[in-house]
Write a protein that binds this DNA or RNA. Structure first.
Lengths: 248, 248
DNA sequence: GGTTCTCTTTGATACAGATCAAGGGTGTTG
DNA sequence: CAACACCCTTGATCTGTATCAAAGAGAACC
């Protein structure tokens, strides 16, 4: 499996098994193939911290399998998740040394990494890469800003609906499913992680999910498997005028 | 005055009058000088919307004087500010056509603009530009994510303190002042705008400012001129462990 | 099969901030 | 200078979410 350098629209890649939003070295950016020699894989167990905020970061990379989160924590323990990393998502920043947040493995994960120095050196030689990273970063920025609206102005029920909509959308994108009507997926997060993402407590998350279930917007099978009966209804609950940003 | 392309650390620029976080065409990126022919200036009055969310954007540019805000609005009118544009800040995104948020002039402003097509063409030819835009976008992303912590987890008083700290810091950077002890500056925002930034109501903003005043953390002269008596104390009130990100 | 652990749900209560309402300052306009 | 428009402050009350507390469900382990 080759490195993936995520750059936006999802596409199939013969090299990797998954359909992803990335471009494999061999598919697209030939120069990346040169990096094969400095490429390496690492696995982390669920719950492990991949990167500590403030640490020196000597690599960039992407998630191959599993789920990780970007979180910030205050001294007293209050935690805010600021990003969700799904397979194909990129981690790290060329030109920066210090990690700005914790990266925590939510499930067991495999990362594909490059040492930063050679990666940066290649970026110098290959203008395309910087342009792609720019596109990607702009997407993340839009996502972060859309999330600011969620955190700052939405009510608990709208927050939950927003999160479910985002996960559903991303799941559908990966599976090439369409985005209307009924949708099913597994929640990749515990109630607590959802709470940390939404700026709520886990109790409130639980209550609001129960309420959406009671009101027939969704149903649950077990704690994690969600069926959205009507995507439009869910988006309405989310207070979403936008027909769906690039979120997460 | 030449275009500024913000790229991080503040520096003096003989070409522009202000000390800013930008690099002027002539100072640094020679190729930008070629763009002089497609450069133009526009003024907007306080309260005017510079760009409507969803609109076609055919230019990129930067703020020369005045203050503007990036905001998102829900159908029912709830508003969240997602960014603050001070002099030298960049607006627009190469490779994107549709504006993702409203840009509103908070004071009278002057913008320096480039038509997007030629700008993008030049980016193709000048790898440095993409790399700088990438740095800049990464800064904005960090700022947005730091703000997510503010919105999601901080209490009203902490939010206000955080905002004051950010404005103080930015103001000091522009003025080359140091970042400790006593600091004075003018609030560039109304209470309502502050509320929109912080995910609060204007009444709560007002009350918390009064409280900080009562507790001797700050004093006010008129409604807008703030004196922070002790910057460390303010940061403490903000619940800030970080010694100050790149925020805003 | 029982014990333990983690995750989740649900209930009761408390509180921070929203909402509703009134009034004060200051600058602008005629 | 009066009248108006903004912006800001302060008070009273309401409400959504946090907090505290208890117990259920499922998985993992012995």
């Amino acid at each position: 499996m080759s490195l993936e350098l995520p750059i936006g629209a999802p596409r199939d890649c013969g090299d990797c098994q998954i359909r992803h939003r990335a471009v494999c070295a061999r598919c697209d950016v030939d120069e990346l193939a040169q990096l094969d020699e400095i490429k390496y894989y690492r696995s982390y167990e669920a719950g492990q911290t991949v990167i500590w905020s403030g640490d020196q970061m000597d690599f960039v990379g992407s998630v191959v399998t599993g789920i990780a989160t970007l979180t910030q924590t205050m001294e007293d323990g209050r935690t805010q998740m600021v990003g969700l990393l799904l397979p194909s998502d990129f981690v790290g920043r060329p030109g920066r040394d210090i990690a700005p947040y914790d990266v925590v493995a939510t499930s067991d994960i495999v990362m594909c990494c490059f040492r930063k120095k050679p990666f940066e050196a290649m970026m110098e030689k290959t203008p395309h890469i910087a342009q792609r990273l720019l596109q990607m970063t702009l997407d993340e920025l839009d996502a972060a800003r859309e999330w600011m609206l969620v955190l700052g102005r939405k009510k608990a029920r709208e927050k939950i609906a927003s999160l479910l909509a985002i996960i559903a959308r991303r799941d559908a994108t990966l599976k090439l499913a369409n985005l209307q009507g009924k949708m099913e997926f597994d929640l990749p997060l515990t109630r607590e992680a959802m709470a940390d993402y939404l700026g709520l407590t886990l109790e409130t998350v639980s209550r609001q999910i129960s309420a959406l279930k009671r009101d027939g917007v969704i149903s649950l099978e077990g704690n994690r498997h969600v069926t959205v009966h009507d995507m439009d209804r869910l988006l309405e609950e989310a207070g979403d005028d936008s027909d769906g940003g690039i979120l997460v």
